[in-house]
């Protein structure tokens, strides 16, 4: 169906936690292939392992067992420095709780990943302005997150996720803290990024908002994939 090689490839991917003597399963023996340009929706009950899987793909966490390759990066063996660079350059993340830095204003929050990546100030600024204009936040550039509405915060977070032109966009429950109207706007934006810019998008969500657009739906239960449905 997709001629190119997969952008994400997971083989027997497992993440377990062992606080004290017990072992808790985050995800267990997951096999998965995602191709460039796909829009993937992760579904499942609370505690089923959606966030755990996303955190592994985002390079925020290390697998316990199995293989995970994303955009030619072997995340199982990557060093901490390589992971940091990977997070900065390859993925953009959007979270349920927005995760903006409270002491930075909108423009600064958006610019920061670009500056951390070592890009020239002027270029980062121009790009941030362009993104914020597109996201209709032009009038909010110098406001702190505490002065924004939920929808504005999430749009700022999306701008931040895009500043370094990531090939992969990961969203964990992006509509969880938003009303249905703003939730729709956010999903539309993510779909837009996929459709018009060809970015691969993975959304973990309880809501049905994204379902119509998904090219791949993955159902998780107790850390394992119970069902995959491909559309198109």
């Amino acid at each position: 169906m997709y001629p190119t090689s997969p952008i994400i490839s997971a083989k027997a991917l497992t993440r377990t936690y062992s606080p004290g003597t017990s072992t808790i399963i985050g995800i267990n023996e997951i096999n998965l292939e995602v191709f460039p340009g796909q829009i993937v929706v992760l579904k499942g009950n609370s505690g089923s392992g959606k966030s755990t899987l996303l955190s592994l793909i985002a390079g925020l966490d290390h697998p316990t067992r199995g293989e995970l390759t994303v955009a030619n990066h072997d995340l199982k063996t990557a060093t901490p420095t390589a992971l940091t660079r990977y997070r900065r350059d390859v993925v953009g993340m959007v979270f349920q709780s927005f995760n903006l830095l409270p002491t930075l204003n909108v423009l600064e929050n958006v610019c920061l990943p670009g500056l951390l990546a070592g890009h020239p100030d002027s270029r980062v600024r121009a790009k941030a302005n362009e993104l914020l204009e597109w996201l209709e936040l032009k009038s909010r550039l110098h406001h702190r997150p505490s002065e924004l509405s939920g929808g504005e915060m999430q749009r700022t977070a999306i701008a931040r996720a895009l500043i370094n032109d990531p090939t992969l966009i990961l969203a964990d429950e992006p509509t969880g803290n938003l009303d249905s109207c703003n939730g729709k706007i956010v999903i539309d934006l993510l779909v837009d990024l996929n459709r018009h810019q060809g970015r691969t998008v993975i959304i973990a969500t309880h809501s049905k908002l994204a379902d119509p657009y998904a090219t791949l739906q993955i159902y998780l239960r107790d850390g394992t994939i119970t069902k995959k449905t491909c559309q198109r």
């Binding site: 985002a58 925020l60 901490p80 420095t81 940091t84 660079r85 997070r87 900065r88 350059d89 993340m93 995760n99 903006l100 830095l101 409270p102 920061l112 990943p113 951390l116 990546a117 931040r160 370094n164």
Partner: peptide, 16 residues
């Protein structure tokens, strides 16, 4: 702590 995790997630090194 949470802000630190944010910084880390958007590409700041632990060294920083």
């Amino acid at each position: 702590r949470h802000e630190l995790a944010i910084l880390r997630s958007i590409g700041a090194s632990s060294h920083l």
